[in-house]
């Protein structure tokens, strides 16, 4: 890291306690607390049926956390009953972070997105890996059935207000110009691994890999 990119402050940002946080924010509305449900209702079910994308947070036994994206056609997450969801495991990088975490610590936090909707849906619960044939059969896509799925016992369900998505202009097509300001994946890989190849060559290989999604 160059000097130019170092934080302006020489010391770490100071820490505040939860009491101080509460003091600054004030108490939440009683209504906000009461909106948390313990099951999938009619409206949340419809939201999940139209969601093609979610983020999944898990952590290992020591609390080391990570968050990964999951996406497919809308409704790829199956509502098995009002307390049980199943998320297909599609081919990815085979690192299996989420599975390894869940084997040690079954806590899971999901955030569902529906393109165009400012509100997001939060679902928290306990999860485990499954290969139940009737569950996997419902996830068959393009004639391929996943090998595994994640079953989620639902504990908390609630809609998250739209402010973050409004402020971020997430669904504004004009915002997509931002991606043009980023290095390409090929450029990043060449820099990170010190490769002596044309980034565009790597790019073409990656694009080819992206065509095969299932």
């Amino acid at each position: 890291m160059t000097r130019q990119n170092a934080p302006v402050a020489e010391r770490r940002p100071r820490r505040v306690s939860m009491e101080q946080v509460r003091e600054r924010l004030g108490e939440p509305d009683a209504m906000i607390k009461s909106k948390i449900q313990d099951h999938i209702g009619e409206h949340t079910r419809r939201f999940i049926a139209h969601s093609p994308f979610l983020t999944m947070a898990t952590a290992d036994a020591s609390g080391r956390a990570d968050c990964s994206p999951r996406g497919d056609y809308p409704g790829f997450v199956k509502v098995l009953d009002e307390h049980l969801l199943a998320i297909p495991d599609r081919p990815g990088n085979r690192i299996a972070d989420s599975f390894r975490n869940l084997a040690e610590n079954d806590g899971i936090g999901l955030l569902f997105f529906v393109p165009g909707s400012r509100e997001t849906l939060r679902v928290n619960g306990r999860a485990y890996a499954t290969d139940e044939p009737d569950v996997l059969a419902r996830m068959q896509t393009e004639a391929r059935t996943p090998e595994l799925a994640i079953a989620v016992d639902v504990e908390e369900v609630y809609f998250h207000c739209g402010r973050a998505l409004i402020r971020s202009r997430l669904w504004d097509p004009a915002g997509q110009a931002l991606a043009g300001e980023l290095p390409t994946l090929g450029e990043m890989a060449v820099a990170q691994f010190g490769l002596d190849v044309d980034p565009r060559l790597l790019e073409a290989r990656l694009e080819e890999g992206y065509r095969k999604l299932y």
Binding site: R45, R46, A49, G75, A137, R138, M139, Q140, T141
Partner: peptide, 13 residues
Amino acid sequence: RLSRGGSDYVHRY
């Protein structure tokens, strides 16, 4: 019963 997302969508949504 084991809808892959077609008939389930038609019926519910």
